[in-house]
Computed example of a mutant assay.
Amino acid sequence: MRYEGNIYSPHIAGDDYILQCTIGCSHNQCTFCYMYKDKQYRVRELNEILEDIELAKEYYGDVKKVFLADGDALTMPTKDLVTILKHLYAAFPGLTYVGVYASAASILSKTLSELKELQKYGLVEAHLGVESGDEEILRDIHKGVNCEEMVQAGSRVRQAGINLFVTVILGLAGRTPKAWDHAKNTAQICNKILPDYVGILTIIVQPGTELYEKTQRGEFEVPTDMEILEEMRLMIRGMTLTNTGITSIHPSNCIYLDNVLPEGKDELLQTLTRVIDGKDIALLRSRAIDRV
């Protein structure tokens, strides 16, 4: 397949066919993110994308899942996305899923009618990086939107009937008391958005990022694994979500959990407490970075 630069997709989309619709990230200013620093954002020509679909059909035959890359393919004009979706479902009769990364800004640039149209033609899921529900942290990491805008974006996706997978990042406040505000406020923003799934990540400081430079200057200190687990426990404790999956299976985490709220809430909290209290430390894993 034809790709430009490194290709990223959600960890859970590891087996999907990745269709590169845009190059890089339309925002590309988050202080912690390293993924698209080597790319200048642009939208690929539609005819090139359609040619790639035909190439994938020849190479793979039929596929069941497709993920639209790079960092924010939802910035494309709706009519072009509809054309891509139509071609995908025509090329792959067994296709059941098309997902996409979506920023709050790109979601809010679409009307509810436009999002409903994308759902009608087969956009199944959008992945929104919420990261934090704390206004100060969102400003510090240069997310580009505030909490209200993040809630509006997530809610609009849900109203359109598109499944919503949000990611949150533990450790963004470093080893400071602000970490508890981050955990509690992130729980609250998830409660307002009501996503279908919450994916938990843990901050990993990567060279080439602004956060790395802050770390080198002594302005940011990465929390310990136990401090991260305490953040996770506080966040989950504050969640009042219903029929929402929650997972920490991303390799950036020191513990892998997977359950559904509210039924699995007590089990999640009990597991975290056992580990924090030192009674079940065998559940801890070495953290490593993969795809986000």
Rank of each mutant, 00 (worst) to 15 (best):
V124T: 15
S106W: 12
Y89G: 07
D70T: 14
D134P: 00
V292I: 10
D266N: 14
T167S: 00
Q188P: 02
G24Q: 10
L68T: 09
I193E: 08
I204F: 09
Q270N: 10
I203M: 00
S103I: 06
I7S: 10
A91N: 03
T96Y: 12
T75C: 12
L194A: 09
R44A: 11
K64Q: 03
S109W: 11
L194C: 09
Y59P: 00
I7G: 12
I193W: 12
K37P: 01
H11F: 15
A73F: 11
D16Y: 05
G61H: 13
S109N: 02
S132R: 04
P195N: 03
C21L: 04
D280M: 12
Q20P: 10
T75R: 09
Q206C: 13
E221I: 04
V145G: 03
I141H: 04
L194I: 09
Q206M: 14
A102S: 02
T242V: 03
L283A: 15
V124P: 07
R44V: 05
Q152L: 05
K79W: 11
D181Q: 15
L283M: 15
I289V: 04
N47G: 06
Q152N: 09
A69F: 12
P10M: 03
G208S: 08
Y17P: 00
V43C: 15
M35C: 11
E136K: 07
G5W: 15
L19K: 15
G129C: 07
I107E: 10
V145Q: 01
Y197N: 09
S286Q: 15
T78L: 01
A69R: 13
R42H: 13
K192W: 01
A73T: 13
V157I: 08
V222C: 11
E48W: 00
K116W: 08
T111S: 06
Q206K: 06
Q40A: 11
Q188E: 10
L284M: 08
S109C: 05
A173Y: 00
I107P: 01
R291I: 14
E219N: 09
I204N: 12
T31S: 08
L234R: 01
M150C: 05
C254I: 14
Q29N: 06
G99M: 10
L164V: 07
K37R: 12
L164H: 09
R237V: 04
L201V: 08
E54R: 03
P223S: 00
I228T: 11
Y17K: 04
E221K: 02
V275R: 08
G245V: 03
M232V: 03
G133D: 00
R139E: 15
D290K: 11
I137F: 05
T75F: 08
T96F: 08
D225Q: 10
L172K: 02
L128A: 01
N259H: 05
D15M: 14
I107Y: 05
L112S: 06
I276W: 07
E114V: 04
E125S: 08
T215W: 10
T215P: 12
V205A: 05
T244I: 02
M1P: 09
L283E: 14
V151S: 00
Y101C: 10
T22F: 04
A160R: 07
A126H: 00
D225K: 13
H27I: 03
I7H: 07
H250Q: 03
G199Y: 06
D181M: 15
Y256W: 12
V205T: 07
K178Q: 10
